[in-house]
């Protein structure tokens, strides 16, 4: 074996990956060549010293810190992503488009006559109710414009309670024959809770704020 060949085998010799024949030839060459013997010593020293280098180890809290990072990441994943301003703005045309599409589906769809019929009936029912009760439906009870007439002019903010006539008579409020009493108004002339104590709450059927 020549020096060049021997030198190329030295690294493999460190790894112990030479064939039996190569090993024998290299050993024979090293016996007679001091220069290659020196190189072989260097290689084996480097290999040996590298194996003896101080190992760096992780710190004791490594797993805890990792767990904390994973928890943070999982919390971020669980949190719903809020759309940015741009995404919100960009979404409007699409929403308008969707609404227009849905509307056109109704207006030009096969059930458009039925829908128009139902809408007309609802409108007619609302007009009829308003006409017969002379007011609006509030909480299942109706009240009329008498409320406004009874309320004193200076009572800008007042609450009216609808009570039945018997309860009003028992409470001694004859003028409440219309079934309306006034309480908790802003006027300094009349004390708050003027009527409230005498009319049990359960007898009040509706509250109107005006």
């Amino acid at each position: 074996m020549r020096c060049q060949k021997a030198l190329s085998c030295l690294s493999a010799q460190c790894d112990d990956t030479l064939s039996e024949q190569q090993r024998r030839e290299l050993a024979a060459h090293l016996e007679e060549c001091a220069s290659c013997r020196r190189e072989a010593f260097y290689f084996s020293e480097i290999k040996g010293q590298t194996g003896r280098l101080d190992n760096v180890r992780t710190r004791i809290d490594f797993n805890l810190r990792l767990k904390s990072r994973i928890n943070t990441w999982e919390a971020e994943q669980a949190r719903p992503v809020e759309p940015s301003l741009w995404q919100t703005l960009a979404g409007y045309p699409a929403r308008i488009g969707e609404f227009a599409h849905a509307l056109s589906g109704i207006l030009y769809g096969p059930r458009r006559y039925a829908l128009v019929g139902v809408a007309s009936l609802l409108l007619a029912a609302a007009v009829w109710t308003g006409y017969t009760t002379n007011g609006f439906i509030v909480g299942g009870q109706s009240y009329t414009s008498q409320v406004a007439e009874i309320a004193p002019v200076d009572m800008v903010t007042a609450r009216a309670y609808l009570v039945d006539q018997e309860s009003a008579a028992e409470a001694g409020f004859g003028y409440l024959a219309s079934g309306i009493s006034l309480v908790d108004h802003a006027s300094p002339r009349t004390e708050p809770n003027y009527v409230m104590p005498t009319v049990p709450a359960e007898q009040m059927s509706a509250q109107v704020i005006f």
Binding site: V56, R57, F62, R65, L66
Partner: peptide, 27 residues
């Protein structure tokens, strides 16, 4: 973890960085 931090320490020559990168790896 210890094998990785050892390898990365040899690569970067900085223990803290090596440990951070090992954390990133496991993450």
């Amino acid at each position: 973890k210890d094998r990785l931090v050892n390898v990365l320490f040899r690569m970067l020559n900085d223990r803290n960085e090596a440990e951070d990168l090992v954390q990133d790896t496991f993450l």
